[in-house]
Nucleic acid binder design. Structure first.
Lengths: 168, 168
DNA sequence: CTGAATTTTCAAAATTTATTGAAAATTTGT
DNA sequence: ACAAATTTTCAATAAATTTTGAAAATTCAG
């Protein structure tokens, strides 16, 4: 397979995967393009290679910087801004997990915490069903959070990795 | 807080969380409603409590059954179908992970596997950047898959759980 | 077998989300 | 300070997704 074709397929698939997980397709495609680029790319490069508008490219590049997935690169003697992606895929994953936890999971947990005290007799089955479910989701969230923290904090989590291999 | 109000808030938030993660809001809300219901609910109950159409309710109930998140319940002497959600939140999580892996991650890995052989000199930096990224994503996917399998297969993964607590 | 109750389907409509592109703002070399 | 190059903004437009609702299909009690 030719490189150009392979690149196109990767960008396409990464875009589809992103949109299935609630990440806008263009953002995922810009990320994909930068992930496989040999050198930093300018906004114009990205617009051309993905056939998207300047506004779209600009907005998604900014969002990707907010997610810590790409960085601005200054090329001396050039007025344009260039961009590169973080290539360490473990870092990419932890950055995405961290951001989504902060933006989407934490607000849900906050709501759950507000739902702990419901008026009425705790033996009422309607009330019990509700509070039991909320409690169990909260316990699960706490557990998931700890697991995630371990993964995020351990830059290289050799211990957990090799431990999991043993269990396989 | 009154039970009715708390229920509404939970359903609302679960719907938002779902839509942020690429799951249609109604489906997440139907799931939420059944998660906190004390008894099985009929399609009409769901239509009424969520203010959605029969077609919408039916389609999402069907999808939730495909995801193994809810079950049909037969009430003797009643012609209507009733539905209950799986309440064990650990099972809920593993069912969702399993389904999303199968439907969304596996197809991506399949594409990655088709992109391993690119024509041209391996020392060409353009080619190297591409193949290095693809390879590292594949390695990461393999690792994530193993981790997930461990979590899914271990109904009660007491060992990993208590291990992670130690690391905290 | 009949027909009322229930479920399913799916084209059309509504809603939500993403994209464009041109004007405004900003940056930078001279 | 000026002006050309570049980036940012955002209202209008387009695209994608979700929802509706009524007709068709199915189920089931008598």
């Amino acid at each position: 397979m030719k490189l150009a074709e392979a690149k196109q397929q990767f960008i396409q698939s990464w875009g589809i995967l992103g949109s299935q997980w609630g990440i806008n397709r263009s953002m995922a495609q810009v990320h994909a393009l930068l992930l496989i680029a040999g050198t930093p790319l300018s906004t114009d490069d990205i617009m051309e290679q993905l056939s998207i508008s300047r506004g779209n490219a600009n907005m998604n590049l900014r969002d990707l910087m907010d997610w810590n997935l790409i960085d601005k690169v200054i090329v001396p003697g050039d007025r344009k801004e260039y961009f590169t992606a973080e290539k360490d895929i473990w870092k990419v994953a932890t950055h995405i997990m961290y951001q989504r936890k902060k933006r989407e999971l934490d607000p849900m947990v906050k709501v759950l915490n507000q739902l702990t005290d419901v008026e009425g007799d705790k033996r009422n089955p309607e009330i019990k069903a509700f509070t039991d479910t909320i409690e169990s989701i909260k316990r699960f969230a706490g557990h998931a959070e700890k697991t995630m923290d371990v993964m995020i904090k351990a830059e290289e989590n050799w211990f957990l990795n090799s431990f999991i291999k043993l269990l396989k």
